[in-house]
């Protein structure tokens, strides 16, 4: 085997290629999809000079072993697993040089749930509706529309930009590139929300209970949605709505009083009352929660949510500028 290849010697239970998702096809029932924790996915790309919409590998806390057949520059972000190179811990959130013929293992657990691995130049993968994200329901995009498995070969594109070539040279020499920026953490249990379209269907006491009590991420959670257990919330009267658009982060209350938060592969339209909406800034935090984790909703205003959104955009931009300055 030659060329830019990663041989998957051991693979976890839900390992997919994901980018920033599909746009423009929600009216045809197509989920936005993409990385569950888009912030980590974008950061991983930025750290190694990739386009931020490049597909990255999304792993879900379970052991992996990757055999790199060629010199590569990678970046790990997110959490859940600690990458190791020859039993040496690899730092997350910085560009790393992987020499040809080395093996990366993900086995020790870290806080969080999903680890992202980007490679400089990007992975070769299938495009479906203008995105390389794996769409499991349709079996399209990413690596043949499916999760990776043992013995798969992941091919890499071999076109490095000048910034990436410089980065490779710097890292090959043994130097490390330390970036001074705020690395995201996932230890908070607080998930900020704004009122949902049907917030008012909740009984007064339930409106209070919604943000006063903890909820637990249930085992029946996946890339489509997180089911939560905890306090039973009640509506003034039995409430079903005429099916209407929903989006990532929409918190639905089912007739059996279960809360479902729609995630990356969630549907585009729903018939349950939308009692809350997770702020875009905190969807990555929620995506890093695993079954059994507790969360606590905190209500903020739309204006505050917008400010968080813009603040996040600005700090991502800073990281991008930083890496381009270092590698130029």
């Amino acid at each position: 085997m030659k060329g830019s290849v990663i041989h998957i010697e051991q693979c976890g239970f839900l390992t997919t290629l994901q980018d920033t998702g599909r746009r423009g096809f929600q009216q045809f029932g197509v989920s936005k999809g993409g990385a569950m924790d888009t912030q980590s996915a974008v950061l991983a790309n930025m750290l190694i000079g990739n386009d931020e919409t490049e597909a990255v590998l999304e792993t879900t806390q379970s052991p992996h072993r990757f055999h790199f057949l060629q010199d590569s520059v990678v970046a790990f972000t997110g959490g859940g697993l600690q990458p190791q190179l020859n039993d040496q811990t690899i730092q997350l959130y910085q560009p790393v040089f992987i020499p040809a013929n080395s093996v990366i293992e993900l086995k020790q657990q870290l806080p969080g749930f999903r680890l992202y691995m980007a490679v400089a130049g990007g992975y070769k993968s299938d495009s479906f509706l203008n995105s390389h994200s794996t769409y499991l329901l349709v079996k399209a995009g990413g690596h043949h529309g499916r999760s990776l498995k043992k013995e798969d070969l992941l091919l890499m594109k071999e076109s490095l930009t000048d910034v990436q070539k410089n980065l490779l040279t710097v890292l090959q020499s043994g130097a490390t590139v330390q970036l001074n920026y705020n690395i995201p953490t996932f230890d908070t249990t607080i998930i900020r929300i704004i009122k949902g379209i049907e917030w008012n269907v909740l009984k007064d006491a339930s409106q209070i209970a919604f943000t006063a009590n903890d909820f637990t991420v249930s085992a029946q959670s996946n890339r489509m949605g997180y089911r939560l257990s905890g306090t039973t919330l009640q509506t003034e009267q039995p409430c079903e709505i005429i099916s209407s658009p929903v989006t990532q982060g929409t918190i639905q209350l089912t007739p059996s009083s279960e809360l479902i938060v729609l995630m990356a592969d969630g549907q585009t339209i729903g018939g349950y009352p939308r009692i809350g909406q997770v702020c875009a800034a905190d969807i990555p935090v929620l995506a890093q929660k695993k079954p059994g984790d507790e969360i606590h909703f905190q209500l903020i205003s739309l204006q505050e949510a917008e400010e968080l959104y813009l603040k996040n955009m600005r700090s991502m931009k800073e990281v991008k500028d930083l890496i381009h300055r270092i590698a130029n």
Binding site: R23, I242, S244, P245, T247, I269
Partner: peptide
């Protein structure tokens, strides 16, 4: 403007 999603009696504008 990004996209719209129509339903029975509502329209989302992304």
């Amino acid at each position: 403007f990004v996209e719209t999603v129509p339903a029975y009696n509502s329209l989302a504008v992304y």
